[in-house]
């Protein structure tokens, strides 16, 4: 790893980790950082299949939701600690990804993208109607235990900030490794040219399956951390289209297929959303935040289609 990356990345991580120690800090700000880290984590997970593998999963929220419901259900119903439940939840998300892949990765075109949306919306309906297990429209509330580390429950948001930070740093290092690994190179080859990859001896189907399962498991981990933080999950948050679109923003803004992209993009999007939200409240223009947020995102897509990372690279590139 380059020294500069280590210094910048390590410095940023350390700065975030120390935020809860600022004297008299309002826990609202810590919560915003937790939200940002979850958002980044989701972007990092989606980036594996969409950024590296080029497979546009438009309903990625389904893996987030399945994991969140699974861990809450296991805890409420059987008293299984989320520290164990998270492995079950991640495995369920990966398994679901393999089933979706099995049905769609053999055919080309938009089937995969459409199938992920359809399954996501299908799960939303299931979650609304299977009231006995999912709590229906109201969702599931995780049984509250106060500060109970074994139940992954804490009174303040700081422990979640640290946990999320560890996961984000872990996902970042994993993505850096993946980009240069055999699997990662195959994923990128499939993204760049599926036929040429196949002709070069890459098992396209197996590569997509493995990439998708990894991405789904990572998304599942984000779902577990989300549900433990809010101690609640509902069908809209878990499987709604808004969530599925949100998942795509960090990588799209920051730079698809890069390790640092989702981190930059996620941070920018949360700052933007907080700033527009604040402005809308102060100026009493209700809904104006969403409008401004949308316009800025549109600007990114139009003027920096390769994201912030692509923009930085272009500036840094010197003529040969």
């Amino acid at each position: 790893m380059r020294r500069r990356d280590l210094l910048v990345g390590g410095g940023m991580a350390l700065a975030v980790a120390l935020v809860p120690f600022i004297p008299g800090i309002n826990s609202y700000y810590i919560s915003v950082i937790v939200r940002a880290l979850t958002f980044i984590m989701l972007g990092q997970a989606w980036n594996v299949i969409a950024g590296l593998g080029g497979q546009l999963s438009l309903g990625h929220g389904v893996f987030f939701g399945v994991a969140a419901y699974a861990v809450a259900f296991l805890f409420n119903g059987f008293g299984i600690s989320p520290w164990l439940g998270l492995w079950v939840a991640m495995a369920l998300s990966a398994l679901l990804a393999l089933l979706i892949g099995l049905a769609t990765f053999r055919s080309r075109g938009v089937y995969f993208a459409l199938a992920t949306v359809a399954i996501s919306l299908g799960f939303e309906k299931v979650a609304r109607f299977l009231t006995a297990y999912t709590g229906g429209d109201a969702g599931l509330a995780v049984n509250f235990r106060g500060t109970a580390p074994w139940a992954m429950q804490f009174r303040g948001p700081a422990p979640f900030l640290w946990m999320d930070l560890v996961v984000v740093v872990g996902f970042y290092l994993f993505t850096r490794w993946l980009l240069r690994s055999r699997l990662g190179l195959r994923l990128q080859a499939v993204r760049d040219d599926e036929d040429a990859a196949a002709a070069s001896g890459v098992d396209v189907f197996a590569t997509k399956m493995v990439g998708f399962a990894i991405s789904a498991a990572m998304t599942g981990l984000a779902g577990v951390l989300h549900v433990q933080f809010y101690l609640a999950i509902d069908p809209g948050t878990a499987f709604g289209l808004f969530q599925a679109i949100q998942i795509q923003l960090p990588a799209l803004i920051g730079g698809l297929g890069t390790a640092a992209g989702p981190i930059l993009g996620g941070a920018i999007a949360i700052l933007l959303s907080e700033a527009t939200n604040w402005w809308a409240t102060v100026s009493k223009l209700q809904g104006a935040d969403t409008l401004v947020y949308g316009v800025v995102l549109l600007g990114v897509v139009l003027f920096a289609p390769a994201g912030v990372m692509g923009f930085l690279r272009r500036k840094r590139a010197t003529p040969r």
């Binding site: 190179l185 990128q188 080859a189 760049d192 040219d193 036929d195 040429a196 990859a197 002709a199 297929g257």
Partner: peptide
Amino acid sequence: EGRRVFPHL
């Protein structure tokens, strides 16, 4: 056909 290298690798 067409020199199908993987451009980003």
